[in-house]
Simulated scan of single mutants.
Amino acid sequence: MQVLDIQQYNKAVTKSNALIEANYKLSTLEQKIILYLISQIHKDDDDFKMYRLPIQEFSEMLGYRGSPKYTELREITKNLMRKVLEIREGQKLKQLSWVSYVEYDERSGFVSLSFDPRLKPYLLQLKREFTTYRLKNVMELKSSYSIRMYELLKRWQYMKEVEIALDDLRMMVGAADKYHQYHNFKKRVLTPAQQEILEKTDIWFKYQEVRKKRKVMALRFYIQEKSTIDQVVVPIEEKTENNAADQYLKFLAVLQAYDRYITEKQFTKIALLAQKVFGENWLDEMIKTTREILQRGDIREPIAFLTYLLNEKLERVRIGSDHNEVVVNKKVRVVRGEAVPDWLEDYQKKLAESSQTRDTDEEDIEQIRRELEERLKKYKD
């Protein structure tokens, strides 16, 4: 039974990687409540708000029929307020609660919850070391272990494979005190999670046991995105908001691997250029080109360089030439008989320095970006 309205169902859940790898144990329902609330956080929020959950939907999530049973619901939120998570940062071990306040309003039909303020660094204004995925991918999972496994695999999806020590894995999926025998852990956690994630989410995985003297010490996971061979790609202007957002999240995951970030607005501008250059397979080609740029250690502003590169390619397309004549190269910035102009390098350096200066506000940085875009446009014209 689909409980959530489709608009909320397609919202994104964004968590810091430290929170994904934290030590905590929540029931399946408790995890879904937390993730539902996280999906209501806006990427520009600088403080927590009271996040609302419809009481009727809350009741249906429990399998109750008819009028909401407030006694049972209140008991669930009381238990949730007592749940503790542990986050290790270097030599520090932090113990926090998920929720600090709950308020029921029977007249409006909502229960409002507030996150513990100390969770702000792990849920708000995230620019580095975070993972994003669609809420719908976890709301249909039946096992709490499947939810934790899915989040952990999404955190490493950009690497396509990761090796995790067995004891660490038990802790990260909330089974630190259970299934001490590997065969039980495999039967109760790994196998059901593998099947559920395959059937109900956007990824699938297989794994290899890493043994030492016959004993399984770690697991190496191989993570793949579901096949999209039959998917018809249409221009971004004609896509629905949710599909466009999925494209943004896929591209953002690539940047995250290199501690980079891009806004949805910036992505849309670059995506339109990529469509004109690459056509139907624009997203895959844009990701491939971006990876090549990110692997270059001498490019300070990869997004600015990508914009420049796509404009150069588009110019070749417009005059009937092959855009592949313009490529990323180790020796020169762009292979086209010329290098990137000196002013572009100066602006990249200026922008990078401004981004790292505490007394430079976002308006100053945005002004530099606008100036850079104008210079790119003039250079192209």
Rank of each mutant, 00 (worst) to 15 (best):
L85G: 05
E129K: 15
M159I: 11
L37I: 10
L126G: 03
E75G: 13
S97W: 09
V102C: 05
R74P: 06
M81R: 13
L62A: 09
L141G: 01
L119C: 06
R118L: 10
Y104R: 02
I55S: 01
L37G: 01
V162F: 01
T131G: 09
E57L: 06
E60H: 02
F58E: 01
R134W: 15
M61I: 06
Y122M: 12
T132Y: 07
E75L: 12
K127R: 06
D45L: 06
Y104Q: 04
L93C: 15
S100I: 05
N79T: 14
S59D: 01
Y133V: 05
M50N: 12
L152I: 03
M81T: 12
L80F: 02
G109R: 01
T71F: 13
E72D: 12
D167T: 13
Y36I: 04
V111R: 07
Y150I: 03
Y158W: 11
K154P: 10
W98F: 15
M81F: 14
R155H: 05
D47G: 14
E129S: 15
T132G: 10
V99R: 00
E129W: 14
S59K: 00
E86G: 14
T77Q: 07
Q40E: 12
I55F: 05
V99T: 12
Y133D: 08
K142T: 09
R118H: 11
L119Y: 02
L166M: 07
V102M: 07
Y70C: 05
Y70M: 07
L126S: 00
R148T: 00
E57T: 02
Y70R: 08
E129C: 14
Y158P: 11
Y158A: 11
T77A: 07
L135P: 03
V99F: 02
D46H: 11
L93Y: 14
V99A: 03
N137V: 12
K94R: 14
R82Q: 15
S108L: 08
Q56F: 06
L113H: 02
D44T: 11
L85K: 11
Y51K: 05
G66V: 00
K92W: 10
I55E: 01
E60R: 05
Q95Y: 11
L53D: 05
L126A: 01
Q56C: 09
S143W: 06
L80E: 13
I76E: 04
